[in-house]
Design a protein around this nucleic acid. Structure first.
Lengths: 210, 210
DNA sequence: GTCAAGGTGGCACGCTCATGCTAGATAGGA
DNA sequence: TCCTATCTAGCATGAGCGTGCCACCTTGAC
């Protein structure tokens, strides 16, 4: 037995074993025995770090997935149109690890439909994401006239696209590369912007509220 | 005990009990006992119709869900742009029953990630859907110049949107109405169409291959 | 009426797995 | 050195569930 283990590092190690198992066999296949096999720890050891229950292991792993997804969205460009295109393109995972984590998160989200305890965190995160898209779209349309309701709806449609990129990545149903997504979304937002009338001279901002 | 039951009707009745259970408690909660409670049949009776195994019940229910989803996509307009907008908008369920079935299908699709037997049918259906979108988009861009690769990518992006509408409906994460989706997608496809240069005079079709 | 097929129903067993609980070893501070 | 906290590890039990198998009743054809 080595010197004092860093409990946080140990927990992260276990979470990674869970993520690997979910990616390969699905959330339904996650058991303490299988986590143990993947992490190289004994069941009792794992339980020691998570209040003895598999439930806590799962909760912690969801936290880890959410934190990692949020961390990916931290560096965006300065140009407003490029910003929203990047935010959306982030939903198209690029590395194997990102794909794995995305698939695990999709599985959690589906389970969260019918598990109120998990739903809270999942719903909060997704609502924040939708609000981010709305605000980024508002910024990208600065200087153009678009009523609040239409902006809201267009933002929801873009958010549905984000959801689709995540879901289809997990299912391998729409093989898209992040760079292509970025290019297409940039062009699409620019076309939307061109379709909105220019705002009157400065001082009469119609969408200056972001 | 009534006269001879229609076995197909009995199976559909059981499938509906499964769908209800999935929608309310998730696919992981589906057991013979719960199906029995919802359908009003005994476990032995249910097994009689499905070769004795829960597995067959699940397989049959997936078939039912797929058939019902395909049936929704049978009536489309004549106008090419309206056609693709409608096809995409169909992914935004309207009635409670459609939402329920969509949620159940999403659950099956996630399980199909890691269950090769279910994956076959699911993958075939989704590939067919992607091909339909691609061909409808090609038709909507008739008379405009767009290279094959770009068309393919734009179609994939639209298909990702379809995936997102289904996923977000199951998760209640992007509340969008079918009519709004149709309106926005129609406008978006028209904008894309305007952004493509007109094709040379007839006889030189560049995208006439659909 | 007879009999086979169809239909309703459920017992009992084995398997899987989470969890209550326990034991022993080691690290590190006093 | 002693003692406590930390860490590794796993036994035993009960709950839940699928499934092999069986029993009995009814329908409908001959």
């Amino acid at each position: 037995m080595p010197k004092r283990v860093d409990p946080d590092a140990r927990r992260e190690q276990v979470a990674d074993a869970v993520i690997d198992e979910i990616a390969e066999h699905g959330l339904r296949a996650v058991t303490l025995a299988r986590i143990a096999a993947r992490s190289g720890l004994a069941i009792g050891s794992i339980r020691h770090y998570f209040g003895d229950t598999l439930r806590e292991v799962m909760r912690f792993t969801l936290d880890v997935l959410v934190q990692r997804a949020l961390r990916r969205a931290e560096t965006l460009s300065d140009d407003p149109v490029a910003r929203i295109a990047e935010a959306i393109a982030f939903a198209a995972p690029t590395t194997d690890q990102e794909r794995k984590e995305n698939a695990a998160l999709v599985e959690y989200r589906v389970m969260g439909r019918t598990d109120p305890e998990l739903a809270a965190e999942i719903t909060a995160t997704s609502a924040a994401g939708a609000e981010t898209i709305r605000s980024l779209l508002g910024a990208a349309l600065t200087g153009r006239v678009i009523d609040e309701e239409t902006l809201h709806r267009e933002a929801l449609l873009l958010f549905a696209l984000v959801e689709g990129l995540s879901f289809s990545s997990a299912l391998h149903s729409a093989p898209l590369r992040e760079a292509d997504v970025r290019t297409m979304v940039t062009a699409s937002v620019n076309r939307l912007r061109e379709a909105c009338p220019p705002a009157p001279a400065a001082g009469h901002a119609t969408v200056g509220r972001a």
